[in-house]
Design a protein around this nucleic acid. Structure first.
Length: 217
DNA sequence: GCGTAGATCGTCT
DNA sequence: GACGATCTACGCT
C-alpha cells in the first residue's frame, strides 16, 4: 500500500482548538434556509475534522450554491438520483463528497429538507496562522488539506462525529459574488451569480477577473 | 498575467 | 466511450 500525498491525513498546519476559540456548531435549522443564503453565510465558518483525537480546521472563504433539479450545473439536475448523488437528497447538514477528473475530491454541505437535492460546494479556505499560502485555495485543495475523501460522503455534520462545521458568531462583511467556476457546460445556469467569496481573503480560487468584485449586499 | 495541455478514473449514457 | 463542480507545469506576453 502507498501512503503518499493522496492519503487522508490532514495537513499539520491546520491543527486548531475549537473549544479554546469558543466555537459553536450550527443548528439543523441553519441548513434548511435558502441555499444561496447558506452559501453566503458559510463564509467565515470553520470546516473541521478530528483525526487521531486532534482537530484540524479551515475557515471557509469561497462557496458556490447548487440549486437541485432545476440547476443544469448541479449533479442532481433533472432529478438525477444515482448512488453517487444520493447524499444530496439527505437533510441539510450532511456532506456530499465526489471525485472529479479521476483524482480530486470536492466537499459539499447538503442543504434543504430531505428529498431536496441542493448543496453548497466549499471552494476555498484559510488555515490557522502559520498555514502555507494557497494550501487551501481551491475545492480539491481544501478537501485534500483536511484529508476529506468520498469515504465521508453522506456523513452527518451534526452527529457529534469527526466532521463538523463551527462558527464564532462573526459573519463575513465583505462578500463578493460571481458566476460559478467550471460549469460552462450548464447553459443559462452557468451565468447565475451563485459563487460567493470573502473579498478580504488572499486564498480565493479562480481567475483574477472573478475576484475583487463589488460587494453584493 | 494569460492560454494550453496532460494527468487519471468513476460515473453516466 | 466520453466527460468531468480540478490542478500543475509550462510557454508566451
Amino acid at each position: 500500500m502507498t501512503m503518499g500525498i493522496n492519503s487522508a491525513v490532514p495537513h499539520q498546519s491546520l491543527r486548531f482548538d475549537p473549544d479554546a476559540l469558543k466555537m459553536v456548531e450550527f443548528p439543523r435549522s441553519f441548513f434548511l434556509q435558502d441555499t444561496s443564503r447558506i452559501a453566503r453565510r458559510l463564509l467565515g465558518a470553520w470546516l473541521a475534522r478530528r483525526y487521531r483525537g486532534r482537530w484540524y480546521g479551515a475557515r471557509i472563504v469561497e462557496t458556490e450554491a447548487y440549486l437541485g433539479s432545476g440547476d443544469t450545473a448541479a449533479h442532481s439536475r433533472g432529478g438525477r438520483r444515482t448512488p453517487r448523488v444520493e447524499p444530496m437528497y439527505l437533510d441539510g447538514g450532511h456532506l456530499y463528497v465526489f471525485l472529479v477528473y479521476g483524482m480530486h475530491h470536492c466537499t459539499n454541505v447538503v442543504t434543504g429538507l430531505s428529498g431536496i437535492a441542493e448543496a453548497v460546494l466549499l471552494r476555498a479556505g484559510e488555515g490557522p496562522r502559520g498555514t502555507p499560502a494557497r494550501l487551501l485555495s481551491g475545492p480539491a485543495k481544501l478537501s485534500a488539506g483536511l484529508g476529506i475523501t468520498v469515504d465521508s460522503s453522506g456523513a452527518d455534520l451534526l452527529a457529534s462525529g469527526d466532521l463538523r462545521l463551527f462558527h464564532n458568531g462573526s459573519e463575513c462583511r465583505n462578500v463578493g459574488t460571481s458566476p460559478r467556476i467550471g460549469v460552462d457546460y450548464a447553459g443559462d445556469a452557468a451565468a447565475w451569480p451563485l459563487r460567493f467569496f470573502d473579498r478580504n481573503s488572499t486564498e480565493v480560487s479562480g481567475p483574477a477577473r472573478l475576484k475583487n468584485i463589488e460587494p453584493n449586499a
